[in-house]
């Protein structure tokens, strides 16, 4: 029987130290309060003959002391917790991107190479992995206790989560946001494989084409190519070299064309219209499922990388 959670990611130990630190502070405060409580209650019980002497009248000094002491300790804990949190929100640029779609009540995982699986995720050892999370229906939450990480998976919005697994093994994956009748059964596993094992696993599960290639087929199938190609009938912005570059919008602002922006532009094309273009694109909300959107995004990303030398 094991009493501790395995630490299987580089961030896990940091979080455990923080929780340990909090435990220490809490134990100290709890010890102080309980000691004083029992000490006073016994020493100053009403039939105790002990002389009370002068009762502390001026409370101002005490009040200021414990207010400032509490504030200082809390501020330290705040800084510690926030620094780790901010780290957990900044994926390294070279992270391996894996797409996860949640729906009642399963996890669908898609790899850049086109591999797919359900309720299970395979990641390579010691490699930063960035998960792009989207939900098909309600709010879910991707929780891997061994990595000490979790993130809500929202419908209509991309969330990302990154970690570097540093221990080979199979770990639990839970949905930790109540999502309906089958919520408790919406579990899965995360398997960490060493580099060669991972490559082997990828090729053993090889498919007809990579995510981007499948996206390319969908790009034609859904009619995107009709307008977004250079010789289109309607004037629409070219998507070559788009990924990762700044896009000027018609309201004067600029956004970076990341996964979320591209997904939003497919689902809600009239929200962020590119400057000097007409808002003529129809919404594909309800037409294209989240798992296909992921492929389109991968395709558009591949266009970007091909254009740049």
């Amino acid at each position: 029987m094991r009493f501790s959670l395995p630490e299987a990611s580089t961030g896990a130990a940091n979080v455990d130290w923080l929780i340990g630190g909090l435990l220490l502070v809490s134990a100290a405060v709890l010890g102080l309060v309980f000691f004083l409580l029992f000490f006073y209650v016994i020493r100053y019980r009403h039939d105790s003959p002990i002389r009370r002497g002068e009762i502390a009248e001026k409370s101002f000094r005490f009040e200021i002391t414990w207010t400032i002491a509490t504030l200082a300790v809390f501020f330290g804990l705040f800084i510690w917790g926030s620094m780790l949190y901010v780290q957990a929100y900044q994926p390294p640029p070279n992270a391996l991107k894996i797409f996860v779609t949640a729906k009642q009540w399963m996890w669908k995982v898609e790899y850049p190479g086109g591999q797919r699986e359900i309720d299970s995720l395979h990641v390579p050892l010691n490699t930063p992995v960035e998960l792009v999370l989207a939900s098909q229906d309600v709010i879910h939450d991707f929780f891997v206790p061994a990595f000490r990480t979790k993130r809500d998976v929202l419908p209509g919005q991309y969330e990302t989560l990154w970690f570097t697994a540093n221990r080979v093994g199979t770990y639990h994956l839970f949905c930790s946001q109540f999502c309906g009748t089958g919520h408790a059964a919406m579990t899965g596993s995360v398997t960490v494989l060493s580099g060669p094992d991972y490559q082997h696993w990828l090729s053993a599960n090889g498919t007809s084409g990579t995510l981007a290639q499948e996206g390319g087929r969908l790009f034609i199938q859904y009619g995107c190519s009709g307008c977004h190609n250079d010789h289109g009938t309607v004037r629409a912005p070219s998507l070559a070299g788009l990924y990762g570059s700044p896009v000027p919008l018609s309201d004067g602002s600029t956004v970076i064309a990341d996964d979320r922006y591209i997904s939003d532009s497919i689902m809600y094309p009239r929200e962020q219209v590119v400057a000097s273009y007409q808002p003529v694109m129809p919404s594909f909300k309800g037409v294209i499922g989240e798992d296909d959107v992921v492929k389109l995004v991968a395709y558009i990303e591949s266009l970007g990388s091909e254009q740049q030398p």
Binding site: N14, V25, S26, V33, S82, Y85, P145, S176
Partner: peptide, 26 residues
């Protein structure tokens, strides 16, 4: 007092961001 102090101190864990990521929804 005893219960409230325990309840309050566990609140610190949840206010500390990185710890909350792990402990949230549990």
């Amino acid at each position: 007092i005893g219960l409230f102090v325990v309840g309050g101190l566990t609140g610190l864990f949840l206010a500390a961001l990185a710890a909350d990521i792990h402990l949230h929804d549990t």
